[in-house]
Amino acid sequence: MDRRSFLKVIGTAALTAAPVTSARARSNTVDTEFSGILIDTTRCIGCQTCSEVCAELNKLPAPEVEAIDEIEGFRPTTPTQLTVINRFENGDEEIFLKRQCMHCNQPACAAACPTKAMLKTEAGPVIWRADRCMGCRYCMISCPFDIPKFEYDKAVPSIRKCILCFERLKEGETPACAENCPAEALLFDKRRDLLLQARRRISEEPDRYVHHIYGEHEAGGTSMLYLAGIPFEKLAMKTELEHVAYPEFTKTFLYSVPIILMLWPPFLLALNRATEKENETTIENEAEEPWKY
């Protein structure tokens, strides 16, 4: 290989590395003005209006509202129920907790998605775009809250999850669940204001709440924030999650990609040149020199 082809190798490496380097610049922006919902489990009465309006809006089968009395504890969302009310018993007390996508500030699902079908919008909702998704389900592997659900029983399956009523937000409306909650357990606002509000509630009624806002730091912060009267692990919320954004876990690897792409080719070429002299004298037959072209 002469100098020109050497340059070619380097050039190709640089080209391949370019998109990666620009990715670094982009993924660092954290918009704090995301919108979200503050979910106050001490106010929720378990009427499940939210799951009903959600099903209606998304043209999904109506949830079996009565079923809740029989099931205690964790119930996940499903492809046909994007938000689910869980019921927990704590002594004689009943506690209800609404479950749905957390709309992470830096979502693992969106970082994972190879097609950018999962997308964190600037308004806050994490949306899914059918025309891009190739159904690899890597978002499901990556989401720390196990939220994206896949329609295994369909020939043309979709990933289903709450998208924070993205279409309604565009029209200037609020998410259907928050708008229709009769108990004011759901408050829709900018995340910053939600955090202030949550702190105020805790400081005004310190005995009513555990002093923790779930979602403030979990998984690097989420747009959905929770308040509760008992520790969150008793409500089947993941409390051992890292307090860093999940895309951070892949950063080291992603950073080393362009470096290897730049360094490996010249290194290998140098190695190839270095071994040349030693072997030259021992080569007797032209056909036995696959490397000498």
């Binding site: 982009r26 998605c113 190879p114 097609t115």
Partner: peptide, 15 residues
């Protein structure tokens, strides 16, 4: 989609 470039998911390991 991840190949022809209309949907580059550049921060994605799978991409």
């Amino acid at each position: 989609n991840p190949i022809i470039g209309n949907s580059f998911g550049v921060s994605s390991v799978m991409f």
